[in-house]
Design a protein around this nucleic acid. Sequence first.
DNA 1: ATATGCGTTGCAAAATGCGCAACGAGAGCG
DNA 2: CGCTCTCGTTGCGCATTTTGCAACGCATAT
Lengths: 248, 248
Amino acid sequence: MSQSLLRALDLLGALAKGPATLDELASTADVHKTTVMRLLHSLEDRNFVIRDAQQRYRLGSQLFQLSSLALEQRDIRGTAHPHLQRLNEATGHTIHLAALEGRDVVYIDKLESRHPVRMYSRIGLTAALNAAAVAKVIMADMPQDQLESLTAGIDYPRFTENTLTDQASLLKAIEQAGEQGWALDDQEFEEFVHCIAAPIRDASGGVVAAVSCSVPTVMLDREGLLGLLPALLECTRAISAELGHTAP
Amino acid sequence: MSQSLLRALDLLGALAKGPATLDELASTADVHKTTVMRLLHSLEDRNFVIRDAQQRYRLGSQLFQLSSLALEQRDIRGTAHPHLQRLNEATGHTIHLAALEGRDVVYIDKLESRHPVRMYSRIGLTAALNAAAVAKVIMADMPQDQLESLTAGIDYPRFTENTLTDQASLLKAIEQAGEQGWALDDQEFEEFVHCIAAPIRDASGGVVAAVSCSVPTVMLDREGLLGLLPALLECTRAISAELGHTAP
DNA sequence: ATATGCGTTGCAAAATGCGCAACGAGAGCG
DNA sequence: CGCTCTCGTTGCGCATTTTGCAACGCATAT
């Protein structure tokens, strides 16, 4: 694989953590600075990075451009957005839209809670497969062999007391999600935050994405959270319908 | 400059226009497909592209991740956002936040109009220097020599009847913007849309960004647009203050 | 004035990436 | 059923491209 390209891509990753100087980049990447410089020049030429007045490098506008173009291309996102907005307004809570991308479940849209509450998520971030509710509902639709291989490849990090830390319990949760048509994350990823998620299906009937609603436990107890289910299911139903899904 | 890297970056640019197959990419990039493939493999390895079921390539999640990280790093954006939101709610119109990046003025935040109206802009896009109101207010703060070189380097494309198509008239408009503290785009970029913009200043007193408000002429005539000025100026004043700017 | 940090350039070695041509798998079609 | 056509993939030899080193210029600090 192309060494120079990989190095350059990794440089972008390093820059994502914050602006950096040439030497800093060279030492973290463990590449001679002259090489780093030449790569940066190419990146700069294509607007992937820019250098500010103090000659520090930061990520450039081309990245924003590509990213927003790519997000727009995903018709699920455009289709879903107004519905998500409505759900967000109705519930006031944080709404996520996530889709499967390769072996990752990626957040492709997010609507902030109306209440001042921190949620460490971000568009583009990958969801924890062994914790996120969206991951469960998406995996619930996978063919058995793919599900096996995917769940076998997780290293099951523990985030909280409730995190599912082995394949068996995750598979069980996934199965349950498949049966009931929605999934719960009971403080499995973040303490004091629980979520419910439901799948979006397209014309083929397959799950293409999932919507979740995240709520701090202090605002809504389990029962209250489940009270949001009808609104959530109505939301995913509407999006699925718009994507051509006809109720089973 | 690094050939393979530049080619790879251009591939990403090509993919931004939509998913594509290997051969399509090879022919548009005019590179042998075997080379394209290997570059794509590297890009895929770092999640800059993914291939879907039909073996078509599309932009990958790493792009979203980097972009949102980079946008978050810009403290102007985070600081400004709530104020923009308020302005958006108060006026109901499209709000843009733009900043200078190298020789480009880049949109770094956008709030949609509450009215159903198309606006061809996007986060990450560069504003037309000879048309956008945000560009005028940003350039109004530049040192003379930099301004000269920047305005000399534009090729002044005509977008509408009102577009400023030569350096002299642009410089005049910029000067006026500097004097009055805000700028107008009177259907210079899009017909039937006019905008007003005002600068954001940081603790040093320099202009670091600009906010604009875009309105279809059918909704608000010139007078009506200028009626939004107080709200806009209050918004930029508040953001500037939060960035440490003390009124002159 | 001397020393340190940082970005930049010339150069020569070689590793890397390149294009070619051939292969294999799958789809479409007679 | 077998043919061809398309599209992705791989082995290989050549040389282009990239790389690391060392030296330089230009600052700022001591």
